[in-house]
């Protein structure tokens, strides 16, 4: 049976995981390769690395890092952050990434999704959507949540899948950072709307939140950062919890 995926997300700045995070039982806290390997050993199903730096020089540092990750981690990993064009993607895939995520650039130029799917295949194009609930419905945000658009979330996601997005990474800004649980309703609506897998992101605080997003939210995968980084939930325990709630998971 196909299992639900648990995906730790690492924010990268200048080739290092973002400081200020207290990693448990890891000597080289800042080294994304080391941290990624620990997560893979603990049973993470995939990894996501997001480059939160902006300048061109730093982006080439990120490509070098992607190469190191590829050489050291033998589970699938996705990279993203600041991707603007097809060449950026080619560089990251050549460096050994399995998938890329694209967000703001796709909203500004939706044709890039068609171009990426046509050249590299839909399987490596993960469309990231940051959304927020308004009285009039859910709206898409850009630039790490700083810029609001008039795009309605469901119609945007539908369009991206029609254009060739192979997977959706849905982050609810209303839930992100709250630790009060994932956004069940919008995730379920999106998951029922499109044929491709949906990764839910934002709001994980307890093991039960993962049960809810898989059962009620119909997510195919769940992504979280701080609860894993701070050791509040460790992946082997989470997987056993999920298994006991009859959710199919890969236990190593």
């Amino acid at each position: 049976m196909l299992t639900k995926r648990i995906i730790p997300c690492l924010d990268i700045k200048d080739g290092q995981t973002v400081k200020g995070v207290k990693f448990i039982n890891i000597r080289q806290a800042g080294d994304p390769v080391e941290l990624g390997r620990k997560y893979a050993e603990a049973g993470a199903d995939e990894l996501t690395f997001l480059d939160i730096t902006a300048t061109i020089e730093q982006r080439s540092t990120f490509a070098e890092l992607v190469e190191k990750i590829a050489q050291n981690i033998n589970i699938p990993f996705t990279v993203g952050g600041g991707i603007k064009n097809v060449d950026d993607v080619a560089r990251l895939l050549d460096a050994g990434a399995d998938k890329i995520t694209i967000n703001s650039a796709a909203v500004r130029n939706p044709g890039i999704i068609d171009a990426l799917a046509g050249r590299f295949g839909s399987q490596c194009v993960v469309l990231a959507v940051d959304c927020k609930q308004h009285a009039s419905g859910s709206r898409v945000y850009l630039d790490g949540g700083r810029t609001q658009t008039e795009r309605e979330t469901q119609s945007w996601v539908k369009e991206t899948v029609d254009r060739g997005a192979g997977e959706i990474l849905l982050t609810s800004m209303d839930h992100d950072g709250t630790k009060n649980g994932f956004a069940i309703e919008i995730t379920r609506a999106i998951s029922e709307l499109v044929s491709v897998p949906v990764i839910a992101s934002g709001g994980a605080g307890t093991c039960q939140h993962f049960v809810d997003i898989f059962k009620k939210g119909k997510a195919d995968a769940a992504l979280a950062a701080s609860i894993f980084h701070f050791g509040e939930i460790n992946i082997p325990d989470l997987k056993i919890y999920l298994k006991n709630k009859n959710i199919p998971v890969r236990i190593k």
Partner: peptide
Amino acid sequence: PPEQKVPHMGWNT
């Protein structure tokens, strides 16, 4: 067939 998500993506036995 489109009964479930396609592609079949992830870990399976």
